[in-house]
């Protein structure tokens, strides 16, 4: 087993490189992704090695990046579109929701929208406005799209390749605050399927479910809770749409309590969906209602105070205390 240590940014870069090598129909398109290698350097060196025809520096228009990726898909190409930041995907929202999501249906299956929209999402990097948002629920609400998120370098490496190979359009959410964190990457064997939810840490008292940036926060909370005698089972959803509910159900049937954690506000959120599904499916095992830890129902704040908006270890632990203390 060949494993090597790398950052999530490098793992994505290597994953994209492998996809470009494997399939000539794979293209990358985005703003500043060529010479500059992208503002996060995820595509560093790829234009040099694969040429300007395959790694395309786009004029500045997200709607056009996604709209032309649709045409390229019709022509048999698989385009990986890079949105520079979460907050800049909205000019492309119409193309994503009205076309990318619906063209297979409209063409009675004649068209395959095998494209990937890479979205550096969530906050935590002290940026200015529009650079820290969590728009995943907008996309999860749309039939025709799939939404996934990686939380480790190994997942980043494999999930980006699996997403590119997949025949449905995929919104690929990358937790930008974790780009520079290192982890082991197994270059031979994908750890899981693209739409599989995994247990990151076993526990018996409370199940805590997150994705992307919040995984690390949850794992830290689990460490702290353990010192206080509370055993947390940590679940990485990985797939946001569809949700892989079975592993969550198994966990909650065991623990009887659960908390969801994401940076997006909780109104009509992925957390809301998980709470609804688990309440329905695990009703007789539940010892407390599921609680959502989330961002607040306000525009993402100036980042000097973003750590009071994003779920912190303390807020996760507070929610854990609440479900632990619930008596009926």
């Amino acid at each position: 087993m060949a494993t090597t240590t790398m950052t999530m940014a490098k793992a994505l870069n290597e994953g994209l490189r492998r996809a470009l090598e494997k399939d000539k129909k794979v293209l990358l398109m985005g703003e500043d992704i060529g010479k500059l290698g992208g503002v996060f350097r995820i595509t560093d060196g790829l234009q040099k090695d694969f040429g300007e025809d395959r790694v395309i520096d786009a004029p500045l228009a997200e709607s056009a990046i996604v709209g032309t990726a649709v045409g390229l898909a019709i022509r048999g190409y698989r385009t990986v579109c890079e949105m520079q930041f979460d907050g800049f995907v909205y000019p492309a929202f119409d193309q994503i929701v009205s076309q990318v999501a619906k063209l297979r249906k409209r063409s009675d299956g004649a068209y395959t929208m095998g494209l990937v929209i890479r979205l550096p999402f969530q906050g935590g990097i002290g940026a200015i406005e529009h650079h820290s948002e969590s728009p995943e629920a907008y996309f999860a609400q749309t039939g025709g799209l799939r939404v996934v998120s990686c939380s480790t370098p190994n997942d980043a490496y494999w999930m980006i390749q699996q997403a590119i190979e997949h025949d449905d359009p995929i919104i690929f959410c990358e937790p930008k605050s974790r780009y520079w964190e290192k982890g082991e990457v197994d270059l031979d064997q994908a750890p899981h399927g693209l739409f599989e939810t995994v247990v990151r840490r076993e526990g018996s008292d409370v199940t805590v479910i997150g994705y992307g940036s919040t995984l690390k926060t949850i794992l830290r909370a689990a460490d702290t809770a353990a010192t206080e005698g509370v055993s947390i089972e940590v679940i990485d959803a990985r797939s946001i749409s569809p949700l892989d509910l079975d592993p969550m159900v198994r966990s909650v049937e065991k623990t009887g309590r659960f908390v969801t954690v994401h940076e997006a506000p909780h109104m009509a959120s992925i957390g809301s969906e998980i709470v609804a599904e688990l309440t329905q499916r695990c009703f007789y095992s539940l010892r407390a209602p599921g609680i959502r830890v989330s961002g607040y129902h306000v525009p993402y704040p100036p980042t000097r105070i973003e750590e009071d908006y994003r779920p912190t270890v303390d807020r996760v632990l507070d929610a854990v205390d609440r479900v632990m203390g619930f008596e009926n």
Binding site: Y296, V298, P301, D308
Partner: peptide, 18 residues
């Protein structure tokens, strides 16, 4: 800023989630 200010001016009138 005081973090509580993030709840100011999101809406013109009171909102229960805020």
């Amino acid at each position: 800023p005081d973090p509580i200010t993030m709840f100011d001016n999101a809406y013109a009138t009171e909102h229960p989630l805020v």
